[in-house]
């Protein structure tokens, strides 16, 4: 700071231009904060309101005018829990989602590893096939499968539905795990081989510990996909309905408080799971879409 043009002394009144710029910056910060707040409210308020309904008595739910704070009455939820078919539907939903989660990873992750680590004839064809599934309204596949399932005895079964949900979730699992495996330098595996590991040992001791959080995240993702799916569930199950199928089919007949309690029960686990994997959400999408 020697021999430069003198700066205005501290405390000297800034010029109009600088004052304007400072005002503008301050106004911009406020504007951003206000907009962000509004957008957050837009997302959160509807969820809050359905929870208010779920935690109000049935008469409050259909009353007028409505209170915006819940009375924390358990009657709606208790009614929902005791309603015929709900318990079974809930259990079915959990089981279908769990099978979907396991199948997606067990089938998807090896393919992801193959895509990440090998060059082989047909690799591109497989990639394109996987990507193609995304440009396809997959729930519609439930229609022909409903016919096929009758022939092989998978109709109205949890497993049959889980297969369709796996079809929804598995392409993601392939792409996500491929990117996870690509994130582990091949050199690490090679180093393990030179240090005495077989291919399997190197995978278990080196690769798996490094990718397991990401694999867990994509498993959770598969769970949520299945948990939330409505169309295929409604088409493929009749007696063994999942929660979404149950709610859909009782929309016309069930009272309002049952719907709201059902929606709350549907939303909460998905939100918790999503919170658990939030760190991976953007990374997964960023890579899965290239």
């Amino acid at each position: 700071m020697t021999a430069t043009a003198p700066l205005p002394a501290h405390g000297a009144a800034p010029s109009d231009e600088i004052a304007r710029a400072l005002d503008l910056a301050r106004a911009k910060r406020w504007l951003v904060a206000a907009v962000v707040t509004i957008l957050c409210l837009w997302v959160l308020v509807p969820i809050y309101l359905v929870l208010v309904n779920a935690l109000s008595t049935p008469s409050e739910v259909s009353g007028w005018p409505k209170s915006f704070v819940p009375s924390f009455a358990m009657e709606s939820l208790a009614f929902f829990a005791g309603y015929r078919g709900v318990a079974e539907a809930l259990l079915n939903s959990v089981m279908v989602a769990a099978i979907t989660m396991v199948l997606s990873i067990v089938i998807g992750a090896p393919a992801g590893y193959a895509l990440a680590r090998f060059d082989f004839a047909g690799k591109n064809a497989f990639r394109i096939l996987v990507l193609m599934t995304r440009a396809f309204p997959l729930p519609l596949l439930a229609l022909p499968l409903a016919v096929a399932y009758i022939q092989i005895g998978l109709d109205d079964t949890i497993l049959g539905l889980a297969f369709v949900h796996t079809m929804l979730a598995m392409p993601f699992a392939v792409l996500i795990t491929a990117s996870l495996f690509m994130g582990v330098p091949f050199e690490l595996e090679e180093a393990a081989w030179t240090l005495g590991c077989t291919r399997l040992q190197a995978f278990v001791k080196v690769v798996l510990p490094l990718v397991s959080p990401g694999i867990a995240a994509s498993a959770v993702f598969a769970f949520v996909v299945s948990w939330n799916e409505v169309f295929a569930a409604a088409v493929l199950t009749i007696e063994n309905r999942t929660l979404t199928a149950f709610l859909l089919q009782s929309l016309n007949v069930s009272p309002l408080h049952l719907k709201f309690a059902g929606a709350a029960v549907l939303v909460l686990p998905a939100l918790l799971f999503l919170f658990a994997v939030r760190k991976y959400l953007f990374a997964m999408w960023g890579i899965a879409n290239r």
């Binding site: 050199e187 090679e190 180093a191 393990a192 081989w193 490094l210």
Partner: peptide, 19 residues
Amino acid sequence: PPRARKIAMVFQNYAVFPH
């Protein structure tokens, strides 16, 4: 396979296991 060759290797990017 590498494990049976009684060799050891130092890699360009070190390949020090991060976990």
